[in-house]
């Protein structure tokens, strides 16, 4: 009886050892191959296909460095805050480990998201969604102010009419509103007064291109300020169209825009835009994902971390720093 029990004990020990060795073998051989990386979500508003190209280069670099997967959700041009919030909810339900969000409308998104309970970190980029959510953005007010100062400098050197029309589309995004405030602040503080005018579409059915072209026809602005990538692209396109339609006209408009898309850069290179303000979107994308993973893993996040911005003109476009930030090499 005693001998039998002893044999059972030995058998049990050997079986346990076999299970442990099997586990180690599985861990060593299969688990390393089979481990699925965490999935994070990037939800962006979008008006044109390459609007976030540089930003996405940054997130893709982070995806590679941090060994994670990223699921991209791009909203359609006419999507609303509700649809964006629904996308956030869906991503969380599908197991996202964190959300990087470019809100389409600050107040609307804030209202909806403040009523939601989040089990994963949510980080806004470029545009905020209220104080409850940290934002990774540039100093938009300073960028707007820098644009205003560049316009004033241009006015001072060229002696052109001191009149600026600001396109006030997409003001529902606080990034655009802050840029506007900074721009207006800089222009209003000029020693020599500047006539500041604002233009916005009377209704959304009015095509943006047609609307801007109508500004050229109706107001002949010497300076036009666009505060958003898409608006800048549209303004440059409208100006190109206007000039083609009015080849002999001496009227010249200098467009100051914000953007780093291939199209805005090309318009700058082709002198349809006088100067571009751009934020370092590669950094924004890379840091955004990095912060999300750190929040997830280390319960730490700096609120409202700022990324840098620069101003570029035709002359400085091929300087090393601008060349590296504005022209994708991937």
């Amino acid at each position: 009886m005693k001998k039998k029990r002893y044999q059972w004990q030995i058998g049990g020990i050997l079986l346990t050892a076999a299970v442990i060795l099997g586990g180690l073998y599985y861990y060593g051989i299969f688990a390393r191959q089979g481990g699925r990386p965490a999935v994070y979500s990037v939800i962006l508003y979008q008006n044109t296909n390459d609007e976030w190209a540089t930003f996405v280069e940054g997130t893709e670099q982070a995806e590679e460095d941090l060994d994670i997967d990223i699921n991209y959700v791009y909203l359609a041009r006419d999507d609303t805050a509700q649809e964006q919030a629904a996308a956030v909810r869906r991503e969380i339900q599908e197991g996202s480990s964190g959300i990087l969000l470019a809100p389409i409308d600050t107040e609307e998104v804030k209202k909806i998201m403040e009523s939601m309970y989040f089990t994963v970190p949510v980080l806004c980029v470029e545009t905020g969604a209220g104080d409850s959510f940290p934002v990774l953005r540039t100093d938009d007010r300073a960028m707007g102010k820098a644009m205003g100062e560049a316009i004033l400098e241009d006015m001072d050197s060229s002696g052109d009419q001191r009149r600026v029309i600001i396109l006030t589309e997409y003001m529902e995004r606080d990034s655009v509103r802050l840029r506007y405030e900074g721009l207006r602040d800089a222009l209003e503080k000029s020693k020599d007064s500047v006539l500041i005018e604002e233009r916005a579409r009377p209704h959304e059915d009015f095509g943006l291109g047609h609307f801007i072209k109508s500004v050229f026809y109706d107001d002949a602005p010497p300076y036009l300020a666009a505060l958003d990538k898409y608006m800048t692209e549209q303004a440059a396109a409208a100006w190109t169209g206007y000039r083609q339609e009015n080849e002999n006209e001496e009227f010249s408009c200098r467009i100051y825009g914000i953007g780093n898309t291939a199209r805005t850069v090309n318009e700058l290179d082709n002198e349809n835009i006088a100067a571009l303000m751009y934020q370092n979107e590669f950094n924004m994308g890379y840091q955004g994902i990095t912060y999300l993973t750190q929040k997830n893993r280390e319960k730490w996040l700096k609120n409202n971390t700022a990324v840098g911005y620069r101003i570029v003109t035709k002359e400085s476009l091929y300087e090393d720093e601008n060349e590296r930030l504005l022209f994708s090499n991937t």
């Binding site: 291939a262 199209r263 850069v265 090309n266 290179d269 082709n270 476009l317 091929y318 060349e323 022209f327 090499n329």
Partner: peptide
């Protein structure tokens, strides 16, 4: 390494 910048570029494509 630089961006090719001497020729007119209307299509918006830039090459390193």
């Amino acid at each position: 390494l630089h961006v090719q910048n001497i020729f007119e570029n209307s299509n918006g494509r830039y090459y390193w």
